[in-house]
Write a protein that binds this DNA or RNA. Structure first.
Lengths: 242, 242
DNA sequence: AAAATATAGACGTCTATACGTCTATAAAAC
DNA sequence: GTTTTATAGACGTATAGACGTCTATATTTT
């Protein structure tokens, strides 16, 4: 059967998903409103019900829609179900917000892993790690001290790259690793003397401390970081589920 | 076609999903190992490929498996893809960790919403909100000050409930709302004089501040909170994706 | 009027099949 | 020996249909 949506190599369910998304974001379908049933959409787009279903289920996973068996599928309210837990690339997210961001590499060294980094990066103590300390600025103000630990085995040549004003994750892609997921621990901590000096704040001032393990698409742990963010200039938004 | 897995009213794809999960967790399938292809599993369990697929895709979403088109499906490494962003109930999570937790209600009042709570809870200024301040303890030490704002419309009778040492979310279920998702903003802040007094710390000490909007299963916003956690006694672990 | 029951609509599960696309590898060509 | 080309295996997309389950509502019964 020929589809009415035919254009290129884009899967039908993606087209339907994006059509629905657009209708929701443009307000043609408004929050709380019931959207047409799977059967109706299938007829409308001249595709099978399962195809429509696949598109809808993805929007539900995203939170744009919700549904109840026996009742129907509804547009969710904005600002709630639409936000998502996102792993942001510092420069990407600054760019999106129109913020002037930069970074300076403070030091680079290669050394045996600590017990902690060895465990997190799945290294033997005989393996080595590359340690990179970066200071990140927003509008010329230092906001974050970022200590990054990478397995040398995976990124042996990374030290020859220019690491100023770029995100490590972008560099990693050259080595075949695309950052996909992170597990991070968050704490509020007082700034140590060292960190306070770098961030130009008083020792003891609140720091949002993040410790995170970063995984590539295939599950390989590619980075472990200690990250100190000025409490008065940095916040984090996450969505969580039960 | 009759299935080999038939027992009760549990969907086939759930049985297959759980069978696979058990094999992974028991180590019959070990990390990195390729699992049988969709076709093989379909034959093995005497179900259609799409049914197997549904089960597998859910395990992939959970991070227990990962796959590459043209290659196969593989067991992910533990501690990485298996962790998830979870919205925790204070008492549930304390219980799991064998920690002694309790709470005291400090004050309850009903008032018009502030501009912020009105926006977050989708209220008109003519609606009212129930405000509940709770102090939470871990091992008799105050750890969290929790200011909760609920739409009075939804929880008119909640003030007659016993709110000590229980989680509001558990009470909400009596009113037909199951907490499902939250969007939260996190910051490191200095403790105000008021908060410092309640948490028995010095003013200015680091606080992990959480502001969150909480949604029921159907997307209804049911709670908006301001939450002050002692930085030295509280941390948060989240998983994020790109 | 209240309670029990039937029913239509909508989502949930499942099948069997077909063909597309991607990857790794083996075979062929050079 | 290297490069190119087929090919098999595995996942990706899609169809059409069947039947199950749940919900709200209308209908009937009490």
């Amino acid at each position: 059967m020929k589809t009415l949506l035919s254009t290129e190599g884009v899967p039908l369910y993606v087209k339907i998903r994006e059509t629905l998304r657009a209708e929701i974001l443009q307000g043609k379908l408004h929050p709380g409103q019931k959207i047409p049933s799977e059967d109706e959409l299938a007829n409308q787009y001249r595709v099978s019900r399962m195809t429509v279903r696949q598109g809808i289920l993805e929007l539900i996973k995203e939170g744009l829609l919700h549904r109840r068996q026996g009742v129907g599928t509804f547009v969710s309210y904005p600002h709630f179900d639409r936000d998502h837990t996102r792993l942001t690339n510092f420069f990407e997210s600054a760019r999106e917000q129109g913020i002037d961001a930069s970074s300076t590499v403070l030091k680079i060294e290669i050394s045996p892993p600590t017990e902690k980094t060895a465990k997190e990066l799945l290294l033997k103590l005989s393996d080595h790690v590359i340690c990179i300390r970066t200071l990140r600025y927003v509008n010329q103000t230092p906001v974050t001290v970022h200590d990054s630990y990478l397995p040398q085995r995976l990124f042996a040549d990374i030290l020859h790259e220019n690491l100023e004003n770029v995100h490590l994750w972008d560099v990693m892609e050259k080595y075949g690793y695309r950052v996909k997921r992170a597990i991070q621990k968050l704490e509020a901590r007082p700034a140590s003397i060292e960190i306070a000096r770098l961030l130009e704040i008083k020792p003891g001032a609140p720091i949002l401390y993040k410790e995170r393990k970063i995984l590539a698409t295939d599950g390989t742990p590619v980075e472990f970081t200690y990250c100190y963010n000025r409490g008065d200039m940095y916040s984090l938004t996450v969505a969580m589920e039960r």
